[in-house]
């Protein structure tokens, strides 16, 4: 029971972080038609910017400024990079984002060094929010949940309830028609890319201090974000939301399971002594998202809520 409660709490906070990252990626995918390989790099930039800003002023300033800065970097990348590459087709765009990811990583290494920086949780939130079964739940994780839910509502409101959101949605599916109606489609794309990157940056600000802020964080987060987007259905925000939570819960709950394969498949004659039987479910936790990815691609290629197939 304890493990279940903790698994749920942590799974939800991790899942919401994943959603912050993948929502931007899935929006950008709808727009460009290709996956942005550099997306997790913007997440890393968010964490590093927040580290610098919170060092010279405070975390609360960083919370607002860092995502905006990341969004601006994203907008510049779209305006002067991707837009120039776009006429050359999807492969060129894909390679561009691929190269960009490496570029950002190297720049970060040069500026901040090759090892992790000491980016900390603000003192104000460094206490335990409540106690369950003898373990305390950190206030900062509660804060993550609050911010993520706030972002979720804000994004939903922007896209579904405002005129700007209407135009964005239209531009994503029918760019030419929206252009003919007199809207500046390239500007809309730049904004969408910027907002997507800013969301990734926000995730970096929130996650950089509970995980580790180092040059490898983009490479480590990247694959998981792709899994979320593909499992959720490429281009579907709702799908990304569900997939983020599913993956967050899956990883956290799996770690909490003590059983080994032998315990589960013991009736088939599998014993603790055999190599397969001695595998613990908890040690499989890092693999599970990718297992899910493979299964989804086999049985439901369009993803949980996606419309188009890959």
């Amino acid at each position: 029971m304890e493990t279940l409660v903790f698994g749920l709490l942590n799974g939800v906070s991790y899942g919401l972080l994943l959603f912050m990252l993948s929502s931007g990626l899935t929006l950008i995918f709808s727009m460009m038609g290709v996956l942005n390989f550099a997306h997790a790099s913007f997440y890393m930039l968010g964490a590093y910017f927040a580290f610098t800003i919170s060092g010279s002023s405070s975390f609360w300033v960083a919370l607002f400024i860092a995502p905006v800065l990341v969004g601006l970097v994203g907008a510049v990348v779209e305006r002067y990079g991707l837009r120039k590459v776009h006429p050359n087709g999807h492969v060129a765009e894909l390679l561009f984002t691929f190269g960009l990811a490496y570029l950002i990583e190297e720049v970060v290494k040069i500026v901040y060094g090759k090892t992790a920086v000491d980016y900390r949780i603000p003192e104000l939130l460094n206490f335990s929010a409540f106690q369950v079964y003898g373990a305390s739940f950190p206030a900062y994780r509660l804060f993550i949940i609050v911010i993520a839910v706030g972002m979720l509502i804000g994004l939903w409101f922007l896209l579904k309830r405002t005129r700007a959101g209407l135009i964005i949605q239209a531009a994503l599916t029918h760019p030419h028609m929206v252009g003919h109606l007199g809207h500046n489609v390239p500007l809309i794309f730049m904004m969408v890319f910027g907002i997507g990157c800013a969301l990734a940056g926000l995730a970096g600000v929130m996650a950089g201090n509970i995980f580790v802020t180092d040059p490898a964080m983009a490479v480590q987060m990247g694959p998981i974000v792709f899994v979320v987007v593909v499992v959720g259905g490429i281009g579907s925000l709702e799908g990304a939301f569900v997939a983020s939570l599913v993956i967050g819960l899956l990883q956290n709950l799996a770690v909490g399971i003590n059983a080994s394969f032998a315990d589960i498949f013991g009736f088939l004659g599998l014993t603790e002594m055999s190599e397969v039987g001695s595998i613990n479910i908890s040690s499989l936790a890092p693999v599970l998202p990718f297992l899910l990815l493979v299964l989804i691609l086999i049985f439901r290629p369009q993803g949980l809520m996606g419309e188009k197939e890959l």
């Binding site: 304890e2 493990t3 903790f6 698994g7 942590n10 991790y14 079964y133 003898g134 373990a135 509970i210 995980f211 580790v212 964080m217 480590q220 956290n252 770690v255 909490g256 003590n258 613990n280 908890s282 040690s283 936790a285 890092p286």
Partner: peptide, 21 residues
């Protein structure tokens, strides 16, 4: 008796909560 991947875990919270429970 738990073994976790070397240098890959960024958040030990689930492990710690297992220890506590």
């Amino acid at each position: 008796n738990e073994l976790h991947p070397l240098g890959k875990v960024k958040d030990f919270t689930p492990y710690i909560q297992k220890i506590i429970s």
